[in-house]
Design a protein around this nucleic acid. Structure first.
Lengths: 112, 112
DNA sequence: CGCTGATATCAGCATCGGCTGATACGTTAA
DNA sequence: TTAACGTATCAGCCGATGCTGATATCAGCG
């Protein structure tokens, strides 16, 4: 049975999305895109950051699979990949639940 | 009604735990602590990293509220704060759910 | 007591990552 | 077609951050 992709015995696959979210401006962009899809110029206006900077951050969010770009004419609309965000959240809650179940937290292993 | 602390209109409070998790070694440590509480020397052994390095990372995890230190004699046992991990996961899934509900993703706002 | 071992702190170094300005590319409008 | 606009890419700078070695601290044991 496969609860989630977390059954890889390690959590390395969570690093790209975690790293992508662990930046104030990128987290802000994700928050904006959670309300509605926006094009780059909207994000530039809303954040006050330079266009080139926003574009760089959008690339990292894209590479991490958290957002998707939809070019329309000369604009590029970005939408949040809600499945990716939800999957990350689910893996974290799943990790917490699994930790609560394994009862070896009150009986510490003896030290060498 | 207060679903979660996410109703702050911004997600800045998620940055400390996200930054703490967005590092390979720290994520590995969190994963180890999800199985059982461990003291520093166990983590040093399991990761192969230097003691001073592990100690520095444990401090960051502590500052982010993801783990708690429990000194016992000359050892210090660390346990995962599963509530903190679960809360982070819940906020992310909640953000994804909220994004899915707000239907403004197919009708992009017009560009200036 | 002094010694050993576990842990934390600190300063220094090296690397990474974010910000910027310049620039290139593609699209729409005049 | 040309000009203007939206966007992406690139190189460079600089501050942030991870890693290390040295050292301090503290508990338990001889």
């Amino acid at each position: 049975m496969l609860i989630s992709a977390a059954n890889d015995a390690n959590l390395d696959h969570l690093l790209p999305p975690l790293r992508a979210l662990a930046d104030p401006l990128r987290l802000r962009i994700v928050h904006l895109l959670a309300r509605e899809s926006l094009c780059t110029c909207h994000i530039v206006e809303a954040t006050g950051a330079r266009q080139t900077n926003v574009s760089n951050h959008l690339r990292q969010l894209r590479d991490a699979g958290l957002v998707h770009a939809e070019p329309r004419g000369r604009f590029t609309y970005y939408r949040l990949d809600t499945d990716a965000v939800r999957a990350l959240g689910a893996e974290l809650t799943g990790l917490a639940d699994a930790a609560d179940q394994s009862g070896d937290h009150d009986i510490p292993r003896t030290c060498p």
